[in-house]
Design a protein around this nucleic acid. Structure first.
Lengths: 135, 135
DNA sequence: ATTTTTATGTTAAATAACCTAACATTCAAT
DNA sequence: ATTGAATGTTAGGTTATTTAACATAAAAAT
């Protein structure tokens, strides 16, 4: 079993995730309703969150603190996924269709990647990574 | 927050631990009743297991497969704790009172530290360590 | 200055998951 | 044959989570 598997393994009940992230159940469910996360379910339909889910929730919290709304957060987080595949960003390839979205993203990305003023969460975004082995 | 904290952080419900260890709830509770583990509890008295607890359960399962009983397992696991403090084992310091126990431990230790024939558990003992950073 | 939308709070009713305790079963050792 | 250890099974009770609805405060749009 590799790191990817471990990160996406459904492990945590919503109660634990509430403590880890200092979000309310209402908030977590609302973010799911807005397609920002998609935790697994037990046979009985109860949510089961992975490390990835918790990590993502911490990011969402951070972005909300910075004033973004659901749409903006979704844009940013979805973009991050696309960037992972080890390809070197050769001058930024533009998807012709969604120029407006890409521009928005560009603006957000530059605006946000500054000054790491973070909240008082019991676990800050990024800290979760320490649960895993280094590469 | 350091690794020790993370390893002992109460995170998992018994349902998850059942899947991780392939033990039944009955077994897990029985081992607790025999003081082999001591998981935390929620306010509502439900068990919450840490990585350490899961690790320990995997060890218990392995030792049971090898024919040990509760007493033997407790001895072994308690001994391992004492050995952790980075001291170099200078010829094995004997505690005068419990010679019989020490002998038993010695025998077990030698008998058991051979041939790693392991079961078909979804997660083998030791594998859990990969959740954590290397030292 | 209203009205609407967004993010979150609160509550209720249903049910899934978990709890303890008791009794049953299996198997190995006496 | 009897005992004890480990686990199965069942019952009744409690806790945690679910969805859905309605409420609210602040921000955005009109």
């Amino acid at each position: 079993m590799n790191d990817m598997d471990r990160r996406s393994m459904p492990l945590f009940s919503i109660g634990i995730v509430m403590k880890l992230t200092e979000l309310t159940a209402r908030q977590i469910r609302y973010y799911e309703a807005n397609d920002l996360i998609a935790p697994e379910r037990t046979k009985g339909n109860q949510r089961l969150f992975s490390f990835n889910d918790v990590d993502r929730l911490l990011q969402i919290k951070d972005l909300l603190d910075r004033g973004l709304n659901m749409a903006g957060i979704k844009l940013l987080l979805d973009e991050e996924k696309k960037e992972i595949p080890g390809e070197i960003p050769e001058k930024k390839k533009k998807t012709p269709a969604n120029l407006t979205d890409e521009e928005l993203r560009g603006i957000l990305k530059n605006e946000l990647n500054e000054a790491g003023r973070y909240g008082k969460a019991s676990m800050r975004q990024g800290e979760l990574a320490r649960f895993f082995v280094r590469h």
